[in-house]
Amino acid sequence: MARSFLQAVATEEVAPPLRVVQMEGVAVLKVIKHCKEFSPALVTGQLLGLDVGSVLEVTNCFPFPIREEDDENEADGANYQLEMMRCLREVNVDNNTVGWYQSTLLGSYQTVELIETFMNYQENIRRCVCIIYDPSRSNHGVLALKALKLTDSFMDLYRHNNFTGEKLREKKLSWVDIFEEIPIKVSNSALISAFMTELEPDSPVLQCDLDRLKLTTAPFMERNLEFLIECMDDLSSEQNKFQYYYRNLSRQQSQQQTWLQKRRTENMARKAAGEEPLPEEDPSNSIFKPIPEPSRLDSYLITNQVANYCNQINGAAGQSFCRLYLTKALHEK
């Protein structure tokens, strides 16, 4: 039985989870071009494409101008965006926002701003993704392109702004569960692949090979370590906050205990004297006021960043080992 379109739409209630982001070569190159040209300034842009089942296709994108801290410019930016979308639609580019891209410096993208932007996008489009490109790493012959989304459980917590230890434990959400990396697939039209096959140079050595074989990694490592140390400092100050909180909490609890003890003995005495017992709770007393628990979001984000730096250092060290042993082998010949 053929289903009507309406029925098909109506039954499509449960969306399959997003598994792959499929980027067109043109979108990849545009992102890279924009991010690289403005590096080290951080730039953003919009991704256009289609949402097809568990695959999110990114077929095109356009850059945003560098934003200035101005109210006027905000309206300007919105205008720019509308204009651009209208123009691109006229030449039959997919006119559907699927997320945004941004450049980053050594992968330091795990910020509250990113989460906020994501939540903003998420409100309007059900399925969106953030593509992150790191121009600083591409000088080492690495294509540092990543697609990220926030996990559903995290978004749920974020909406209620609920980052107490108890809630997190209940949801079993640890710091690894904030961001979810989605594998990127690159696709090209047949036309492009024909052109590129034609144009691929015969020379066996390509620029990316030269980049990869560069022996100097010191500046990259140094920056990475610097960032790592900064993050560790931040993390330890966050830890201090928690320790402070727990100390206060336990002090308060012991105060409450002693108060309760006193009240109970007093009540015993009153009972023996045949008087009404006093209530065992006293909201007016300051020691019963709950101490607000600091949000764990920051420490989670910092932990994420630290883990990211560690991964980068590890990766770069691995590459460095390869290069060193290669040099050694060459030298011995």
Binding site: V28, L29, V142, V186, S187, N188, S189, M196, P201
Partner: peptide, 21 residues
């Protein structure tokens, strides 16, 4: 294009981006 890698740009579908190693 060489920086990005021709492998990525000329294949009709590339399933996975190559990592560092």
């Amino acid at each position: 294009a060489e920086r990005v890698g021709f492998d990525i740009l000329k294949m009709a579908v590339m399933d996975k981006l190559p990592n560092d190693l």
